[in-house]
Computed example of a mutant assay.
Amino acid sequence: MLNGIGLVVILVCVFGSFLISGGNLMVILHALPHEMMAIAGAAIGAFILGNSLPTAKKAWKGVMRVFKGSRWTENDYRDLLAVMFTLLSTFRKGGATAIERHLDVPDESTIFSRYPRLLADKGLIEFICDYLRMMTVNFEDPHQIAEAMENDIERHHAEELLPQHSLQMMADGLPALGIVAAVLGVIKTMSSIDQPTEVLGAMIGGALVGTFLGVLLAYCLVGPIASKLHQVIDADFKPYSIVKTAIIAHAQGLPTQVAIELARRMTPSSYAPSFQELETALDQAKDEMYATAV
């Protein structure tokens, strides 16, 4: 919704100001198809040439992610804290034997199955299970766990950012591609130098449409999309930091509820549950643990 509003504002203000100032929109519309073909075609071709097929596919999916936004909601963060509380409590009370069955097949776990939206995030569930499993084999040094988790998060984050970097490179190159299209238009104009002034003026105006489109696409479309994708990727990686904080605090021997409170403080402020809301969610998790145990 917000993305659509932004796009409408751009188009209305840019072309509206042109019309209000007395500009002839037909000059732009006449030149638009072939100028767009040159600029967009060169940009897409360079994008394909400079990126692997998996990166190109992720970039397309990334554009879709921009319009969908981050998948994480306030309820999801609260559920994540609750599931971490349940897992760590189960681990502390029953040891490796009690928690391994939940880690081996998360889809069949009575803990994970209570939170289907979290369970759908396979990467995060795998991250949680892998590091809890490492702790079951006496991976006792919290500093080693912290370093391993941080390196893992950085690696995955860098991989997720590859499509964003490729889109940003496209945005950076679009103004130059607009100049390429404009130069081609000037070459065409110079080959028709014997034409009347009004014809040459229209041809030069059409050539300058290339520069205009290159700058417009770079700074009002592709660049903002790349920037928004970076924000969405960063937002989708916040849960990993929350999980890391909870597990490291647990490995340091802190009480489970304290570990979860530290993790809550890593939650983005606009989505973080209040202390009371978290208490309510954890009480409900305790009741479900007890019901399952009985």
Rank of each mutant, 00 (worst) to 15 (best):
W72P: 10
W72Q: 04
E74V: 09
E74C: 06
N75Q: 15
N75W: 02
N75V: 08
Y77L: 01
R78M: 00
L80D: 08
L80Y: 06
L81S: 09
V83K: 01
V83G: 00
F85P: 10
F85H: 15
F85K: 05
T86Y: 01
L87W: 05
S89C: 08
R92C: 02
R92Q: 13
G94Q: 04
G95A: 02
A96S: 14
T97N: 07
T97H: 11
A98Q: 07
E100P: 04
R101W: 06
L103E: 01
L103A: 00
P106N: 05
E108I: 05
S113M: 12
Y115V: 05
R117S: 12
D121R: 14
D121V: 11
K122T: 10
K122W: 04
K122P: 05
G123Q: 14
L124G: 14
E126I: 03
F127S: 04
C129A: 15
D130V: 12
Y131W: 04
Y131K: 01
Y131T: 01
L132R: 01
M134E: 06
M135H: 12
M135F: 05
T136M: 07
V137Y: 15
V137F: 03
D141G: 07
H143M: 07
H143T: 03
H143L: 07
Q144G: 11
Q144A: 05
Q144H: 10
A148Q: 12
E150I: 06
N151T: 13
N151Y: 02
H156Y: 09
